[in-house]
Design a protein around this nucleic acid. Structure first.
Length: 263
DNA sequence: TCTTTATGGTGAG
DNA sequence: TCACCCTAAAGAT
């Protein structure tokens, strides 16, 4: 489930769950034994998210870089939870256990590496240093379809395959529109939307783009199968106009759109 | 009990 | 452009 909101939520939860105090760090699966040993018994100073990247800073220890990729998960379990599955990394104290499975990246890095990684990322709407103007200038330079540009982490860090289709729908823009044909106002609207939506995603710990008024309950209570307008809804009626949601392929990945609402 | 899929990204050719 | 990496759950048989 990893788009930017997931990573920021994880950083927040890790900070409250694993501090203060030293941590028992291990690699039950055995593929990160050396890394785990280097962190073991060091307190977590701070977890921080940057787009879809997660960085954990340990007191008197190295930095840990985690990227969940498509299938990675970092799950909170009770203290002393039994080992089940392919757990690359386990962080534990006497109150909780966090198990990392299937990450694309789990590696110790130094500050120079951190700088190199973050310098390659575009503005993150969930960070104080995420700037609308920077997003607009990067977006409007791209000749790619909007839906492809939104997946480019150098244009905006943290947006993934669910948000990109939903943002195109919510702004009423055809996802195939070349980004450099958009207006400044449209770029502004996309940034504001991304900021609001990702913040809501962190709060609810899931993506809910649907207008609660259409469903008649609060956003937190919208059922999972009603919380999105387009994603994985091909063939189903648009929540706004009842036309059929269409599946298209953009930037080698599936994208969804309403042919009537987005033109 | 298979095969497929997934909210991602890299490196080789 | 393709092959490939990682894992688990859902879907097909």
């Amino acid at each position: 489930m990893p788009e930017g909101h997931t990573i920021h939520r994880l950083a927040k939860d890790l900070n409250s769950s694993l501090r203060p105090g030293t941590l028992d760090v291990s690699s039950p699966q055995g593929r990160f034994d050396d890394g785990a040993a280097a962190i073991d018994q060091h307190p977590l100073e701070r977890a921080e998210a940057w787009g879809k990247h997660l960085f954990l800073d340990f007191e008197d220890g190295p930095l840990l870089h985690i990227h969940l990729g498509l299938i990675g998960k970092l799950r909170k379990k009770p203290a002393e939870a039994p080992v089940e599955g392919e757990i690359r990394l386990r962080l534990a104290n006497d109150k909780a256990t966090w198990d990392l499975t299937g990450p694309m990246v789990c590696a110790l890095i130094d500050p120079d590496d951190l700088e190199e990684i973050t310098s390659k990322l575009g503005p993150d709407p969930l960070r104080r240093d995420g700037k609308k103007d920077e997003f607009a200038s990067r977006l409007l330079r791209k000749k790619l379809p909007l839906s492809a540009a939104l997946l480019d982490q150098k244009v905006i860090a943290g947006v993934g395959n669910v948000y990109r289709s939903e943002f195109c729908f919510l702004t009423g823009i055809d996802p195939n529109t070349p980004a450099n044909e958009l207006t400044e106002d449209q770029a502004d609207a996309l940034w504001t939307l991304a900021t609001d939506q990702l913040k809501l995603g962190v709060k609810l710990n899931r993506i809910v783009t649907r207008d609660p008024d259409e469903v008649g309950v609060t956003a937190a209570k919208i059922p999972n199968d009603e919380r999105l307008y387009t994603y994985k809804r091909e063939g189903l009626p648009c929540h706004r106009c009842s036309d059929e949601i269409r599946l298209v392929e953009i930037a080698k990945r599936k994208a969804w759109m309403c042919p009537t609402c987005q033109s």
